[in-house]
Design a protein around this nucleic acid. Sequence first.
DNA 1: TTAGTACAAGTTGTGCAT
DNA 2: GATGCACAACTTGTACTA
Lengths: 445, 445
Amino acid sequence: MPSSENKSKFLDSQEYPLAFEERNRNSPKICAICNGSTNCFHYGVPSCNGCKTFFRRCILSGKEYQCQSEECCLITKGSRCKACRFKKCIQVGMNPNAIQTSKNISKMITDVITQQKEIYKSNDKANIVDNSQYKYGSTFLDDQSSPKISPHLSLTSEITFEKTLNELLYIEYKYKLLRESLFTGHEFWGFSIDDLFLKKSTLGSVENYQKPHNWPLPMTFKYERSVFEIDENEFQVQKKKFRYCYKHWIITDAILTLDYTKSLPFFNNLPINDKKCIIKHVGASLLIAIKAFYSYVMNHKYIYYPDGWTPIIVHKNATNLEVEVYVETVKPLYRLMLTNEEFCLLKILIICCGVSADISNNSRKILEDAKEYYSYILFAYLQVKYGNIKGATRFADIISLITTIFLYGQKFKEFRLLLNLAIEKLDPKSSRMPLPKIVQLFMEN
Amino acid sequence: MPSSENKSKFLDSQEYPLAFEERNRNSPKICAICNGSTNCFHYGVPSCNGCKTFFRRCILSGKEYQCQSEECCLITKGSRCKACRFKKCIQVGMNPNAIQTSKNISKMITDVITQQKEIYKSNDKANIVDNSQYKYGSTFLDDQSSPKISPHLSLTSEITFEKTLNELLYIEYKYKLLRESLFTGHEFWGFSIDDLFLKKSTLGSVENYQKPHNWPLPMTFKYERSVFEIDENEFQVQKKKFRYCYKHWIITDAILTLDYTKSLPFFNNLPINDKKCIIKHVGASLLIAIKAFYSYVMNHKYIYYPDGWTPIIVHKNATNLEVEVYVETVKPLYRLMLTNEEFCLLKILIICCGVSADISNNSRKILEDAKEYYSYILFAYLQVKYGNIKGATRFADIISLITTIFLYGQKFKEFRLLLNLAIEKLDPKSSRMPLPKIVQLFMEN
DNA sequence: TTAGTACAAGTTGTGCAT
DNA sequence: GATGCACAACTTGTACTA
C-alpha cells in the first residue's frame, strides 16, 4: 500500500496542480480501487470517476453495507460488492474530510479513520521484519569464499532488509574472528595503498587463524613517564624494556578495516581515488568505533585489545587527549548499550558520511543512496525492536553517535600526530620501522 | 554592503544549492504560511504566490470556511483545509488593508483584525502555550514525584502532533516578531538571573513593539583591524567611531530565549537550579541556532541581524574562529534547506539535550521524556512529508545537526571569551557597562 | 519589489442515461 | 435504486503586467 498517499488530515500530503513538466510523471494512470484507468486524484487517491462518486455517496448516505461473500471480493470495474468496494476505498486512503458538505458526517469520518488505522496495523504486523528470526549468520558459516553483501539498493521488501542485516552481521563476525586471532596482516605491511585496495579480502580466510590460548596477556610493564615527558636516554631504556608481545593494533585494524570495506558493494565499485578520499576522511573514526565497541563488548571501561594491550595504563599521567581517545570513546557505548546489529549499521553509516568535496559527483550520489538505504534499515530494525516512539528516539541517539565518533576520530588523529612528533624528536635516526602507507592514509589530516 | 573582498572570501556560492546575487539579500526564503519557497513579501508577510492569491481571494470573496477536522491542520503547500490556511494567514499577520480594491471589504477587514487580536489574546492568556491542551504537559504538572509510566502513550493521534507543532510555530512566530522589533529587553538588563527566570514572559506583548521602517541599517563603518590586532589608542579611536545604532544582540537574544523556554511546559516546571544548569549547557548553542536560522531565512550566507548588523564584515582579517562562528554556522542550514517546522523542533531538541550530570534525576527523566516526545513528533512529521525512507534519512540529517550546533556553540563561547580578554586588556578600566548576568550564564563554560 | 490579473489545469459536485 | 459519464462549477498556482 502506498504510504505517500496518506490517511488523516495530518497525513494529507497530496499536492494540488503541479508544474507542467512534473505533471506527466506524477499523474496517475490506474484507479487504486478498481484498476480502471484515470488521470486524476479524488479525495486524495488516484481513482476513476465511478469510484469517486461511489465513495462520496457512501459517506453522504451513511449506509453500511454487508458483504454477501467472504469480505475479500476482488474489486474491478463493474464489481457489485458495495461492502468490499467501500472497504477498498478506505484501505487505499480515501479521505472523507475532502468531501465538501454542510451535512454532519463527523461520526462517519471518525469511523473511517479508525478503520483505516486498524487496516494499517494489521498490515504492519504481517510485513515488518520479525527480529527474532535474525540468526547470527549461521547459514553462511559454510561459505568458504570471501563474503559479499548483495548490492540491492532497491528498497522494495523487508525481506531484503533482513538479508542485508544478516550479511552485515556475518561479515562483522568474520572481522571479529580475525581481529581476535594471530592475524596481523604482516604480509601486507609493505604493500602500496593501491595494491592493498586491489588484493583479495582476507575476511574469506578466517580458518587459517586462531585465537591464542594465552590471550589476554597480562599488562606487566608500565612506564613512570610518557613519551611526552622523557629525554632521549630514558626513551632508549623504555624501548629496551618494551616487549614485542602484543599485536601492532593500528596496522592490523587498518588492514582489516580496508578489507571490510571491500565487502560493501556500494564502496567497492567506486573509483579508487574516491575510495582513498573516503578512507582518509572516515578511517580514524572507523578505527575508533571498532576499538571502542569491542572494548565495551568485553566489558572494559577503556580501550582494550583482545591480546591484553591496554594503552591507557601503560604509563602514569595520561594526557587529556589520551583520556579522550582511550577512555571517553567507550562511554557513549555503555550509555546506549549498543547492540551488535546497531554497531554494524553504525559502521556503514560512518563510511557513508565520508562525503567530501573531493570525490566525484557520481560517487557522492552513490554514498548518499547508501546512506539512505542503511539508515532506513537501521530505522526499520529499531522500529520493530522498540516500537514507534522508542524506536525513533533510539534512532536519533545512534545517529548522534556518528558525529561524536567523528570528533573522537579527529582527536585520535591529533594524538597520533603528537605521538609521532614526540618519538621523532627522541629518536631522530628513526630506528623504528616506518608505518605502512595504509596507516598513513587512515591517519592523514 | 560587504566589500567584494569579503565576498570572494566567504561567499563561495558552490557550497549552496542556490545561486546568490546581491539583490537576493534580505529577501525571505520561506513562505510563512505553507513553508513553500518564496523570495518576496505579500501583504506584509513572506509568502508564496499561492498563499498570496489565496488570502486575497478569501478576503475579496468574503466566504467563511469551516475546518472539517480540529482547526489545527498543518499547512503545507497543497494543503486543502481552507479554514486553517486562512487562519494561518491571519496568524502570521497578513494585512487585509494591503489589498487594493474599490470593493467595500471594510467589514471583512475589521473582522480579520479582531480575529488576529483574539488569537493573540487567547494564546497569551495561557502564558503562550496552553498547557492544558498538552496531555503531555499536564501529565507532569500534576504529578512530580510518583514513578511514571511513559506519558506518551496518549500521543498516538496525529491531531496532537499537529496541535503541538502549530503551537510551537506560533511561539516561534512571536519570538521572531519581537526579535525583529525595537525590543531589546533593556528594562531587564539589571535583573538577577533568578528574577529573569521568575518574571512574566515578554513573548506575550508583541504588539508593543514594531519593526522600524529604516531597518536594515546599512553597514557603513568598518575597521581596518580587529580588537585582536590593535593597541589601546586605536581601540579608543574605534570606540568613538562606533555608532550605537544596532541592537545589543547577544543580550536581546539571551533574554528572549529565556522567555521562550518559559513557554515550554516541560522546561518551566523544572527546579530553578536545574533550569540554570540546562541553560548554561545549551544556551550558546541555542543562540547559534537562532542566529544562523534567521540569517538563512533572510537569504544571508553569514550571521546577519534584522537591523543590518553583520559582525563578520565589521573588520578585515577575520580570524578562523570568527569565520566558524559567523559563516560556517549558516552553511548546514542551506545544505539541508531547513523548514520552519523542523527548526522549531530542532530548537526544543537542543534544549532536551542539556542533560548534564549536575541536574537531578527527576529533571533528567523529564528532559529525556521530552526528548522522546519531540523527536517523535519531528520523526512523524518527516515521515508524512517525505515518506518512509526519505523521512528517516532526513530525520538522521536533522539529528546530526544537533551535534554540529553544539560544536559551534562551544566555539562561540571560546570566541566570546577571547573577545572579552582582548577588550579587557585594551580597556582595563572597563568603561563599558558589564554584560547582564544572564549573558554570563549563557556564555559560561 | 509587490499588487493585480488572466489562464491552465486539477478537483468536486451533479444531472442524466443506462 | 445503483452506477458511471459528462459537464458545470469551483479552486489553485503560475506567469505575466504594471
